[in-house]
Design a binder for these strands. Structure first.
Length: 520
RNA sequence: GCUCCCUUCGUCUAUCGGUUAGGACACCAGAUUUUCAAUUUGGUAAGACGGGUUCGACUCCCGUAGGGAGCGCCA
């Protein structure tokens, strides 16, 4: 991409219109925000829908805050989400010479000028504007001053010479026609005094050079677009189509932030959401296709259009995400689920269990719930990786055997793992309060009777074991629950678990009998 | 403060001047059930407010209120 960055025309689509090129342009100052993930998703969906290209640009011009590890993390998150990009990511900082060259063109054509206003002078102007309750609009005296009168030894910024009268119109595919009077738009700085290009300028040059036809980004960039439009006009470049999508808010309606429990895509992975579920949820947040709620990525690609994106901000609803996630967990085949589970457990390593649990209004953290449960059952296991190792010790075939009965009740991967804890529990099992209550004198007698019957069973299949218990209950005039619940308590240490006979089958004859005998 | 944007059940949304205002999540109740889920049946629940325009407004216009975003030599 970058080697032919001066090309202005994008390839033509078969029908003669320009082929669509979208881009996602994160700045690597942190991990991928969930709102950014949605922006990326919309760009990706639109590109795939139209058969166009989805490009990536790393906006790393802030040398202080940009970090290579953030680039890696962002790319990993996009990959995890299944959003593949075309070509190599473009690094904005590497293109500073090109940006300066365009600035020089603008200067030569008289569309930009050198401004010798100092930061102090600007601060004073802003303070005055605030005091007089006016909008802060810089009117540089250098716009029309004689360059010869420039102060010696002062490095100027370069400002765009923008129209003083009239208006700049953004024809937005989501927001509609947004009109901003030019008098409210001051002459933006395109080159800092150190020669570094500014964001609003670099974006235009890059979008143009990359052949971007459709800019889909958050509404927080709407006013930037007016400024960027002025750059396009000054260079006589054709404008891309703009679509400014509403932001994602937390449950309280404020912009999504740390206080809402999670905002990084990596955190959602640790919480055990499947990429397919997150994709489905995110797509449905602000966009709709009739009454469709659950749809495959292929369907989303087939249906997606920026015209169907709403204008109002949407609140993030963890309950709905969890419901969707449960759906996708049930849909996923065991081997694939195992892959996701492994990755998820590894991600729980660094999490501090002590944090976050205080706020009642905070969204549920299945990962933390898992760790708390683990702390009571196996205090020796401290991290998700420890648990993973313990599970692997129990045997992959056992894990696989345990999954089918668990996946239909789990709404997240950590929940799935929580349901597996009976596998790694060690004798003597620590029964929780509810489980202890289930084991009374009657229960002990029943367990003793059943242990004898089980021991005599030629097979250890769930159906056979169930037959034994059903017959026993019937003969003794007991409800099945009266017998099955104590078994559950003895086998898992909990009053809630997957079906007991599945549990017994997964544990195997020796371990199951031993746990039962422990409670006689 | 200034500029711009938004407003249908608790939440995400459908509706594109004529509907008993639909769906999904959540919630409540019933069925099913060895627990929890899953499944299934049913239920509660909405056009912010006030004016217009119109035979007729959730839908178009104006105002009010509430909410959001932007106002850097950050991105």
């Amino acid at each position: 991409m970058s080697d032919k960055s001066n090309s202005t025309a994008s390839p033509s689509a078969p029908d003669g219109t320009r082929a669509v090129v979208t881009r996602f342009a994160p700045s690597p100052t942190g991990t991928l925000h969930i709102g950014g993930a949605r922006t990326a998703l919309f760009n990706w969906l639109y590109a795939r829908h139209t058969g166009g290209k989805f490009l990536l640009r790393i906006e790393d011009t802030d040398r202080e805050r940009s970090k290579p590890e953030h680039v890696t993390a962002i790319l990993q998150s996009l990959t995890w989400l299944g959003l593949d990009w075309d070509g190599e990511p473009l690094y904005q900082f590497a293109r500073a010479d090109r940006h300066r060259a365009v600035a020089a063109e603008l200067l030569a054509a008289g569309n930009a000028y050198k401004c010798y206003l100092s930061p102090d002078e600007l601060a004073a102007m802003r303070a005055r504007a605030e005091a007089e309750k006016r909008a802060y609009v810089v009117e540089s005296p250098w716009r029309d001053a004689d360059p010869a009168s420039a102060p010696a030894g002062v490095k100027p910024t370069v400002r765009l010479r923008t129209p003083r009268v009239g208006e700049t119109v953004v024809a937005d595919q989501v927001q509609g026609r947004v009109v901003i009077p030019n008098k409210d738009l001051d002459d933006m700085i395109i080159l800092r005094s150190d020669g570094a290009p500014t964001y609003n300028f670099a974006v235009v040059v890059d979008d143009h050079d990359m052949g971007v036809t459709n800019v889909i980004r958050g509404v927080d960039h709407l006013t930037n677009t007016a400024r960027q439009t002025q750059v396009y006009n000054a260079m006589q470049w054709s404008l891309p189509a703009f679509a400014h999508i509403p932001l994602v808010h937390g449950a309280d309606g404020a912009k999504l932030s740390k206080r809402h429990g999670a905002q990084g895509t990596d955190e959602f992975r640790a919480m055990g959401y499947l990429p397919a579920a997150l994709r489905n949820y995110l797509a449905r947040l602000g966009w709709s296709h009739g009454d469709e709620e659950i749809f495959s990525t292929e369907q989303a690609v087939a249906w997606f259009d920026v015209a169907d994106v709403g204008k109002s901000p949407a609140r993030f609803d963890f309950a709905k995400l969890a419901d969707l996630n449960g759906h996708y967990i049930r849909q996923t085949a065991v081997p694939e689920l195992l892959v996701h589970l492994t990755a998820c457990l590894k991600g729980i390593d660094a999490l501090d269990i002590g944090v976050i649990t205080a706020d009642k209004k905070a969204p549920p953290r299945p990962d933390l719930a898992l760790m708390q449960e683990l702390a009571t059952l196996r205090p020796d296991l401290k991290t998700g990786s420890d648990l993973l190792a313990a599970l692997q010790l129990a045997g992959t075939d056992r894990i696989s055997a345990a999954i089918p009965s668990l996946q239909e009740r789990a709404r997240s991967l950590p929940e799935l793992a929580t349901g597996m804890l009976y596998l790694v529990a060690q004798r003597l099992l620590q029964l929780d309060e509810k489980a202890q209550k289930l084991i009374d004198a009657d229960a002990r007698r029943a367990i003793a009777d059943l242990v004898a019957l089980f021991a005599a069973s030629p097979t250890w299949e769930a159906s056979a074991l169930e037959g034994i218990v059903r017959t026993y209950a019937e003969v003794n005039g007991l409800k099945l629950g009266k017998v099955a619940q104590p078994l559950r308590a003895a086998l898992t240490g909990r009053a809630v678990s997957p079906p007991v006979f599945d549990v017994m089958a997964v544990l195997g004859r020796d371990e199951a009998l031993a746990r039962l005998k422990d409670q006689m």
